[in-house]
Design a protein around this nucleic acid. Sequence first.
DNA 1: CATACTTATTGTAAATTATACAATATTATT
DNA 2: AATAATATTGTATAATTTACAATAAGTATG
Lengths: 229, 229
Amino acid sequence: MVKSSSNILKNVSTDCVIFGFDNADIKVLLVKLAVDPGKGEWALPGSNILYDEDLDVAAKRVLCEFTGLENVYMEQLQSFGKTSRFPLFRVITIAFFALLKIEDYSLEPGPKVTETQWHSINKLPKLPFDHNEIIETARKRLKQRVRIRPIGFELLPQKFTLTQIQNLYESILNIKLDTRNFRKKLLNLKILIDTHERQKGVAHRAAKLYKFDKRKYNKLKEQGINFEL
Amino acid sequence: MVKSSSNILKNVSTDCVIFGFDNADIKVLLVKLAVDPGKGEWALPGSNILYDEDLDVAAKRVLCEFTGLENVYMEQLQSFGKTSRFPLFRVITIAFFALLKIEDYSLEPGPKVTETQWHSINKLPKLPFDHNEIIETARKRLKQRVRIRPIGFELLPQKFTLTQIQNLYESILNIKLDTRNFRKKLLNLKILIDTHERQKGVAHRAAKLYKFDKRKYNKLKEQGINFEL
DNA sequence: CATACTTATTGTAAATTATACAATATTATT
DNA sequence: AATAATATTGTATAATTTACAATAAGTATG
C-alpha cells in the first residue's frame, strides 16, 4: 500500500531518544541523515506523524524506519515547538525516549539514513534542529527518574555485577558514589538475586553476578521508590 | 490586526489545566463552551496553536482568550494525540498546567465561553474529548511533584496556617497525615517564616500565620527535595 | 612459588531522620 | 465557669544515613 502525502501531518513530527549503556557511558542512538534537511549530519531518528496514527505508534514506526529497531517501548518525553526549530516550515515535534540493552538489538540503517551509531552522551556532535536540546531534556528526565524508580533492568545485561550497576548510576547522575553505602542501599531494595555465578575472563578477583527479581523490580517501578544517593 | 485562518495550525492545539486550592480541595478551572464542538459542556480552556507562535505563548494566549487570566506561568504537561480524541478531524493537543492562588486572579469568560468556574478535582463533570484524561495526568504529575519540590507558594494565600498547608498536601496526595510529624518535617525545610500574626475571626484558638521565605523556597525548588510523607 | 597488581567485598560507630502515639493550650461561645 | 473547637507540642524507639579503609580473591609476572 502506498500512502499518499495527504496522510502526513506536515506540521507534526516525532523524535526518538534511545539510551543505552555500555558499562562506562550512557549512549544515545544517532543516525546520519541521507537526505536534506540535515543531510550528512548526525541526528535523532525522527519524522512526520501520519494523519491517522497514534503518537506512540508513530514513534515506533519512525524508530524502526530509521534504525531497524523493533519492539522498543518508548515513553513520551515532551513536545518541542519553537517556531524557529525547523528551518523550512513550522514543525512541532513530540519527543519519545526509551532505555535499552545495546547488545539485545541489531541496527539496520533505513533508506533515509547512511549510518546508525551509539554516541556517548558526553561527547555528542552538534546536531541539527534542536536535537541537542531534546537529548539534554531526556537526560534530565532520566536523572530524575533514577531517584524515584529502580533502573537497570532496561540497560544492563541479564547478569551483572554490583560494580556495573554502580557505574550505571554514576553515569546517569554524573557523580561518584561510595561503594559500601551504595551496595547497602541497593541490596536493601531486595530486587537483586545472587546467581552464585562469577565474572569470567577478568585479570583480577572476579565479581559476583546478580540478576533482577523481575517481579519485585516491577512492583517497585510501579509504586515508586525513594532512592536518594 | 486580523489573523487569517491560514495562520492556524489546524492539527495542533493546546489545553490548559489550571489548579487552584480553596483550603479544602484542589480545584480545576473549567469553561463552559459557547460553540461547537462541545457547546454547552464544561471543558478545559483550549484551542489551536498559531503557525508562528511558540507553544508556551500559545498556551498563555488561549488561557487568556478563554478565561481572562493573564500572567500565568504554565509548564508543559505532555501531548495527547489519540487519533480518535477529537471528533471532527485529527488534532494533537499539547497540554500545559499551572498552579495559582484563586483569589489573586479575576475571571472573565471570553467570546467562546459562557461561563468560567472552579471545579473540585474530585467532583468533575464528564468533559468532552479526552479532557478528563488530561486532568488525571496533570493530577498525577502534581502528586509526583509534591515529593520532589516544595509546593504551596503558588496555591496558598500569602499568609497561611500550618493546618492549611497540611490540608493542601493531604488534598494533593489524597491521604491523611500525622500533624506532629508533618509539622516537624515541614518546619525542618526552613522555608517558613513565622509572621507572629494570628488567624482572625475563628471561633476557637487562632492559629499562627506563616509565610514562605521566597529565597529559600526557590532554592529548594531548583535543587529538588526529598519530601516523603 | 612468591610477589605484585587489580578489583571485589565488607563493618561499624555516630549522627540524623522517621515513626508511632495523645495530652495540653488557647480562644470564642454559652 | 463550663463547653466546644482547633492548635500546638514531645519523646522514646526504630530505621536510615553517613563517613570512613582494611581485607579478600583472583590474575599476572619474575
